[in-house]
Amino acid sequence: MKKILVCLDTSPRAPRVLATAIDLARSTSARLTLFRSVSVPPELVEKDVFGLAPGALRERMLASAKEGLMRYRADVPTELLEAVEVKIGSPWEAICVEAKKIDADLIILGSHGYGVLDRILGTTAARVVNHAECSVMVVR
């Protein structure tokens, strides 16, 4: 195992996901890419918000997501850290695309919590399991 994509959302489960990832990376000498995706609310997409303020909202969303991840970055031993990435997109899709892009051997993510419905249904994890081309670890 060489590359692990660690998906950290804003839910309270994220620290546990990261702890599991650090633990696995240590014992398998893999490196971690911390990842978060942010979605534009559908009603804003319809109003073509990007056209009204080119790039501004997008940049703002990415910056705030990155800021969130940087707090976790401090917990990762330097020798285990590969990168910190943020993307705009629906979580399961963005996760699968990123995993392919960095050629990840393993995706680690929480079972629930990427958005309101997901907190109850856990659909993101199930979709990633179904669509990812690499191994996936779902953490409770």
Binding site: S111, V129, S135, V138, R140
Partner: peptide, 13 residues
């Protein structure tokens, strides 16, 4: 299993 397991699940393609 992924939806209901009390412990982490690693799925291998």
């Amino acid at each position: 299993i992924v939806r209901t397991s009390p412990v982490p699940v690693l799925t291998v393609g």
